[in-house]
Design a protein around this nucleic acid. Structure first.
Length: 265
DNA sequence: ATGACACGCCGAGCGTGA
């Protein structure tokens, strides 16, 4: 009896406040029913995390949040093991940005990278250092043929195809050479941007500013990513940026980004 | 463009995001 590969759908979504978005997230889950949903910017501490809507939809929840800032969660149909909150080693991070679990044999990191605030600021240095620390953790703990998936809001647009106005925005936050190098250094240890493994298309975005009617004007950036090691990336069948929830009432400014895999191989 | 728009903070503007 050979192992039969099945659809394995993993979604990353920065919801910008889970309590403000719980109806949207519930509606999305009821409609799309992914296997795993990675949430960022839940902005809620674990004791106040709204678990019931997820349980009612047949999902398990692991949460990692502190107060009304940052915060991540992993929602899964299947059991999760080896739950890790924050970096695996060293001093605790200054915010809840990392939640790692194992599902169906895949090590999945749900990530909310620092924003960086302003080039040259202390927050910007922290952002670059956070990427180095993440790279070192992944490089130190996994081999290239381990199935590892990093999904989340990376707060970096990987290249000019990923921003609506690459000339006008050159060198600004999310688009700077330093940030792109930090992301490239992470990918260089053996991670593939799943969307880019499927498509060269420009103008596919995961975030649209609330201001300036940016969504209607297609002024966005692709900063929410699924990065996979080769065995998993080779099993990627599609990456879908679902624009529908961005048009719902009271939307998040980010789209859910859906990775479709055949897994296990 | 010091703006815009939205969150959570605990009850009002403010810090923060992207």
């Amino acid at each position: 009896m050979r192992r039969v590969s099945r659809p394995f759908r993993v979604v990353t979504w920065n919801v910008n406040g889970l309590r403000a978005r719980i109806d949207n997230v519930s509606a999305y889950l009821a409609e799309k029913a992914p296997d795993v949903l990675l949430l960022q910017e839940t902005k809620v501490d674990d004791a106040r995390f709204p678990k019931v809507p997820f349980l009612e939809l047949g999902y398990r929840v692991e949460a990692f949040g502190s107060g009304g800032y940052a915060g991540v969660a992993v929602v899964s149909k299947e059991p999760v093991t080896d739950v890790q909150r924050g970096f695996a080693e060293g001093p605790p991070d200054q915010a809840a940005r990392i939640l790692a679990v194992t599902v169906r044999g895949v090590r999945i990191y749900g990530l909310y990278a620092p924003n960086g605030t302003k080039l040259g600021s202390e927050a910007f240095s922290y952002k670059l250092a956070w990427f180095r620390r993440l790279r070192d953790e992944i490089a130190g703990r996994f081999a290239a043929d381990d199935p590892v998936l990093l999904g989340g809001d990376f707060n970096v647009a990987p290249d000019d195809r990923d921003v609506y106005d690459p000339e006008g925005l050159r060198g600004t936050l999310h688009v700077s050479d330093e940030e792109r190098a930090a992301l490239a250094d992470l990918c260089a240890i053996g991670l593939v941007d799943c969307f880019r493994s499927m498509s060269d298309e420009a103008g596919v975005y995961s975030w649209y500013d609330y201001r300036h009617a940016a969504f209607q004007r297609r002024m966005g950036m692709r900063i929410d990513l699924l990065l996979a090691t080769r065995p998993l990336a080779e099993r990627c069948r599609a990456v879908v940026h679902d624009e529908a929830p961005r048009a719902w009432p009271s939307p998040s400014d980010h789209l859910p980004v859906e990775g479709h895999f055949d897994w296990p191989p």
